[in-house]
Design a binder for these strands. Structure first.
Length: 279
DNA sequence: CGGGTTACCTGACGGC
DNA sequence: TGCCGTCAGGTAACCC
C-alpha cells in the first residue's frame, strides 16, 4: 500500500492525534504475527514512557523514546487508527493508549507490516535501517553524480533501480512509473545507458511527483488511509499508473503496460521512447 | 554475486 | 452461488 507520500501522511496524522508531551499509559500486543512477530518484550519497553519525537525514515515510522524506537512499517495493507473507546476490528494486531486516553491501534490484514523495537545504541546497525539509501529530498546525498556512479556497476532497468531501497528510499511501484513518465525515460532502459543529465531529470521528477502526492495526502487505490481514517487524492493525478490503454494525458498515445521484476509497470511509448536521447 | 522469481498473507474481483 | 485464477501500494529468501 504505502510509499513515501502515504507514510509521511500517516506520520503527520499520527502526530496530530497525540497529546502534548505524549506518554504511553497502556500497551497490548493483540496478535503478534506480522512479517516478523512483535517482540514479547516490546510492551515493557514503551509502557509508561514519554514520546520524544515521531519521525519517518524511508517507509518506516519511528516513535522515539528515551532508550530507543518503536519501529513501524506498514507493508502493503497496514494502517494506524485512533479510537476514544476500543472497538476491536478483524486484523487488529497491536494497540496502545496515550496520556490523553486515546487508543492508537495497528491493523494489517495481509500481515506484511512490521512493529518492533530498536535500542537507541544499536540504531546505526539495525538490520531494517542500515542499508537504506538516501532520502529523495536530500540535496546533498541524492544527486545525479551519486546515481551515475552507482549505476555503472548495475545491470537493471531504471525502474527496478529506482525502487531499490538501497539506491533511494520511498519510491515504490506507483511513483516509479509516475516519475519516469514525468522524466520522459522508458522504464525498461538499462541504467548503464543513462547519463548524468538523465539522472538530473529523474531526480527532479521523483521529487516533484512525491511532493505533489504528499500535498494531496498520498494515493488511495483501494485501502490506504491515514491515521485519521482519511483517504489520499493523488490517484486522480496519475498519468500512467493503472492507465493501460487509456490515452496519455500529454500526447494521447495509449499507455502501455508490462511487468518488470514481477511488478506492473506503465508508460507512454511516445513520451518515453526506448532509445535514449542523444543529448 | 547481482539479478529475477517466488513466498509471505488476505481479500476483492472477474469469468465460468 | 461458488469456485478458481489473478491481482494488489513491500520486502526478503531463494535460486541461477
Amino acid at each position: 500500500m504505502p510509499e513515501l507520500p502515504e507514510v509521511e501522511n500517516v506520520r503527520r496524522t499520527l502526530a496530530a492525534n497525540l497529546p502534548d508531551s505524549p506518554e504511553v499509559i497502556e500497551v497490548k500486543a493483540l496478535s503478534p504475527k506480522l512479517r516478523v512477530n512483535i517482540p514479547k518484550s516490546l510492551p515493557a519497553k514503551i509502557n509508561g514512557k514519554k514520546l520524544r519525537s515521531l519521525q519517518r525514515r524511508a517507509k518506516y515510522i519511528l516513535f522515539e523514546f528515551d532508550d530507543g524506537y518503536l519501529l513501524s512499517h506498514l507493508g502493503m495493507t497496514g494502517f494506524w487508527r485512533f479510537e476514544e473507546r476500543r472497538e476491536v476490528m478483524k486484523h487488529d494486531h497491536f494497540e496502545l493508549r496515550w496520556s490523553n486516553n486515546r487508543y492508537m491501534v495497528y491493523n494489517d490484514p495481509r500481515r506484511f507490516g512490521l512493529i518492533t523495537w530498536v535500542d537507541a545504541k544499536f540504531l546505526g546497525e539495525n538490520s531494517w535501517l542500515k542499508n537504506l539509501g538516501p532520502e529523495p529530498f536530500n540535496q546533498q546525498t541524492f544527486t545525479s553524480q551519486y546515481l551515475f556512479a552507482l549505476s555503472r556497476k548495475r545491470v537493471v532497468p531504471i525502474k527496478s533501480f529506482l525502487m531499490d531501497q538501497t539506491v533511494v528510499v520511498g519510491v515504490g511501484n506507483i511513483y516509479a512509473s509516475e516519475a519516469l513518465h514525468l522524466a520522459g525515460i522508458n522504464p525498461v532502459l538499462q541504467v548503464k545507458k543513462l547519463k548524468t543529465e538523465h539522472f538530473e531529470k529523474i531526480i527532479a521528477a521523483v521529487r516533484e511527483v512525491l511532493q505533489k502526492s504528499i500535498d494531496l495526502g498520498g494515493s488511495t487505490i483501494s485501502d490506504y488511509q491515514n491515521a485519521n481514517g482519511g483517504s489520499g487524492e493523488f490517484q486522480s493525478q496519475f498519468k500512467v499508473y493503472d492507465r493501460a490503454e487509456l490515452p496519455c494525458t500529454i500526447c494521447e498515445t495509449p499507455i502501455k503496460t508490462c511487468r518488470i521484476a514481477g511488478r506492473s509497470t506503465f508508460w507512454c511509448p511516445h513520451c518515453q521512447p526506448m532509445r535514449v536521447s542523444k543529448k
